[in-house]
């Protein structure tokens, strides 16, 4: 699997993402924001960080960088795209995923391990998990308060199996750290080729990091592609 990792000014999880994907045997390439060539990937990853300093809104400026035009075209042709944290915010601003992010309800930057529940595994990102699985993966964000376009839209997303992960406690009960609608932590688009989540699976790939639960998501993607 060839993974292109997009790097914007202010991206800071690019190397962790590279480490995690190379650990599972993928080939990785960094792609700079002002390039026009995605380098023929099987998967594009928009990693976490603070692209363009989060100025205006998280992801708002990154969305207009030259490489994003290529990412949008790639996604519209069915290519797999994964956005983690700031990458998720960029995908929302690009309208590759529905909805928007607001500041966390308590206005704090939240950085901690959090449990998540797998809501749907009928997709490339979570197919190696069982529905209802509880995983433990770090979150680190100030704007993770997911807001759908409308209540109707939210319902459609549930019906279309686009809600992938919810914030829960260790027993699987809803535990919402940031005010996100329906405690949503991760979603996909209708075609199930574009995935976005606020938690950082690439930071949960070795037991020494406190959890290995994230690696299964990356392996799911690899199994789906190859």
């Amino acid at each position: 699997m060839k993974v292109s990792i997009v790097v914007f000014p202010g991206t800071n999880c690019d190397r962790d993402t590279q480490w995690a994907f190379e650990k599972i045997g993928a080939q990785t390439e960094f792609v700079w924001h002002n390039e026009h060539d995605l380098k023929n990937p099987d998967l594009v990853v928009l990693p976490g960080g603070f692209s363009y300093g989060d100025y205006l809104r998280s992801g708002a400026i990154a969305r207009f960088s030259p490489i994003m035009q290529e990412v949008i075209e790639f996604a519209n042709k069915g290519g797999y795209v994964l956005g983690i944290c700031n990458g998720f915010q960029v995908l929302l601003e690009s309208h590759l995923l529905p909805g928007a992010m607001k500041r966390n309800e308590n206005l704090h930057f939240i950085s901690k391990h959090h449990h998540l529940k797998v809501i749907n595994n009928n997709n490339a990102f979570l197919k190696n998990f069982k529905m209802g699985d509880i995983v433990n993966i770090p979150i680190a964000h100030a704007e993770g308060n997911y807001t759908p376009q409308s209540e109707d839209d939210l319902k459609r997303m549930w019906d279309n199996e686009q809600i992938l992960l919810q914030y829960v406690d260790k027993d699987g009960n809803i535990s919402n750290p940031n005010g996100s609608a329906d405690s949503i932590a991760g979603i996909c688009n209708q075609n199930k080729n574009v995935f976005g989540l606020m938690p950082h699976p690439e930071r949960a790939v070795e037991s020494i990091l406190g959890s290995e639960d994230g690696i299964g998501m990356l392996i799911s993607l690899m199994d789906s592609i190859k």
């Binding site: 205006l56 708002a60 928007a100 376009q149």
Partner: peptide, 8 residues
């Protein structure tokens, strides 16, 4: 196009 996110 840029200054506002008209979703919210």
């Amino acid at each position: 196009k840029l200054l506002a996110n008209t979703v919210i």
